[in-house]
Design a protein around this nucleic acid. Structure first.
Lengths: 342, 342
DNA sequence: CTGTTAGCGCATTCAG
DNA sequence: CTGAATGCGCTAACAG
């Protein structure tokens, strides 16, 4: 391994001078700087971060913890985060908790252990509170994205779950639906809770009684919603829903798939709306969706994080709410309404 | 920050004993081990990897470099890699080069600098050779996945580009197509070259002359293939292709989208086959695809890498070729043939 | 089974 | 503008 001493010897300077060059110190003569840089390139020297961190406690590395690398929402988040991090001179490490608190905890220990200047995190669920406390204890700033955690006061970038859900549900109601089902993620996740609450509230406001048989708790991951849907379809005629609200992209996509498989016509026999977008399709999607600003979750999240790290942020925790854009499509529109915008 | 000394003091042992406990040394009495572990938990101690790495040069961290986090192929690779890494007691860091050599280089420096025990890498393109050399120089083992690099001798997990392409093209020929276009990724990527070569060879074997107007070089990323397709459609009747071979999932998906937008019937006016799978669709896909074992690229790749790291691998570089499974669907089948298997 | 000594590669002092 | 001494937190090598 080549060290600053190797460079120093070959360049006829002290190790300290080499260190200064590496760290772009101003107080170096142009001449010696050039000399040192030449030797550095010559020997293919790369500073040893471990040694460096040991002293400075700074790594210029940020970590992004997402819950599902297979979810296009989170891959867009990652892109946004990466772009901003690079732009600000930080490197970004990606960790995938797989919606799993234990995995998240393991990664947390690694991040702390290896040294991250800050963490942008979509927590697996409410248990993640422990991991946030741990970060705090170790003095590592973090910003929550997509999901908040009760009683954790920190910078956040969240979706407008209440408003977006309300608009989707009201759209269905306007289309004449009264029996609207919800297929949701686990209620230990804040977004699932908030979307469900808004679903309930919206129904009530419109004088529609809430039927618990129409409320299904499933997974946010790409998983089987067959059971949930089967149960909905098996309900007696007077309870059976005429519309389904899918609370994330995978649920939306899989709901469509299963209805298709069962030869149930969308929207004639069942309307479908989805929170967030299943964004790979071979032809035009027919699914009505609320499109989130996935990229901005990452981009803005990293921005808040870096401000926090560099002491440029206000004391008070900031909460950014990103609105979603609703795209009305055939999956929720009567034929006569096709293409109309809300 | 809490260090081994804090633990040592509180547990009435030496720092060395604490170190032994952390490292699960056998030569510790059950009693002192318990005592130390209690204090560690009590103080929420997490070992400082930087200090550790400085001595051991081992991190138990592997890195996975992929070229496009937005590509479902690579997210599956990542899942496979992560599963195997975890199973073997390693942590996995994800880096996204974005098909960009410069980004890859930056990440490389970080990985070397921060300390990775090994790197599993899908190289951005042939330039990546420099980065591989750098890894070698720093004594960091690596395994190539998906893409190889000329003149780099190392463990590899690759797709059977030749055979899979040949089968796809022969399928099209059997369907009566003679004018088959290829929309490819950049030829600085090995998979693009190999698929194109196989495309050319297969046509020749079947006595079909190769028309350069039918060969389009595009991107492997989710990008616009409008131009390529427009150019194909603008060709005079006698040259205009009746089938398109898309060399990856994004190209396949976007080809379908654009044909759809242009109201060109698939397969009647244009047949389409795709190397790899655009795997998020709301209903049954109609696209004929060669499905790669994406997960295994990651899983097996990490296995080879760990064997290499732990000295359990043979001297000689290993080359694993993973076959693809072809799914014939309507996008390439005459109506009468629908559903038939090759 | 446990402790002592030394030093990993670098940046932070403080001198010149 | 440059250099010398010191120690970050930890473990390898040795000693007991």
């Amino acid at each position: 391994m080549v060290t600053i001493y190797d460079i120093a010897k070959k360049a006829n300077v002290s190790a300290m001078t080499v260190s200064r060059v590496i760290n772009k110190s101003e107080k170096i003569s142009e001449e010696t700087r050039k000399k040192v840089e030449t030797v550095i390139k010559e020997l293919n020297y790369i500073p040893n971060n471990s040694a460096r961190n040991l002293i400075t406690k700074k790594t210029k590395i940020l970590s992004l913890m997402i819950t599902d690398i297979g979810n296009p929402f989170f891959t867009s988040v990652a892109r946004g985060a990466e772009d901003k991090a690079m732009q600000m001179g930080y490197q970004l490490l990606l960790c995938n908790s797989d919606e799993n608190f234990e995995k998240e905890s393991k990664y947390m220990d690694m991040l702390i252990s290896t040294g991250s200047d800050g963490v942008l995190i979509a927590p697996a669920n409410d248990n993640s509170k422990k991991n946030m406390k741990k970060l705090t204890k170790h003095g590592i700033p973090f910003v929550l994205i997509d999901r908040n955690i009760p009683d954790i006061d920190c910078d956040q970038v969240l979706s407008d779950n209440e408003a977006t859900t309300r608009r989707l549900i009201e759209h269905l109601i306007k289309q004449g639906h009264q029996k609207i089902a919800i297929i949701n993620g686990p209620l230990v996740v804040s977004t699932a809770r908030e979307r469900q609450q808004s679903y309930i509230d919206t129904l009530k406001i419109h004088g529609i009684s809430v039927n618990n048989h129409l409320i299904k708790e499933s997974q946010f991951r790409d998983s089987d919603v067959t059971n949930s849907i089967q149960e909905l379809l098996n309900l007696p005629e007077q309870e059976r829903p005429t519309a389904i609200f899918a609370t994330n992209n995978f649920i939306g996509m899989n709901t469509m798939k299963i209805l298709y498989k069962h030869n149930i016509k969308v929207p004639e026999e069942m309307a479908v709306v989805s929170y967030d977008v299943p964004n790979y399709t071979e032809n035009e999607s027919i699914l009505t969706v609320a499109e989130q600003q996935a990229y901005n979750f990452g981009y803005i999240g990293i921005q808040l994080l870096i401000e926090r790290i560099e002491g440029a942020a206000p004391e008070k925790a900031r909460k950014i709410v990103l609105p979603s854009e609703i795209h009305l499509r055939t999956s929720s529109l009567h034929q006569r309404d096709k293409g109309r915008k809300s």
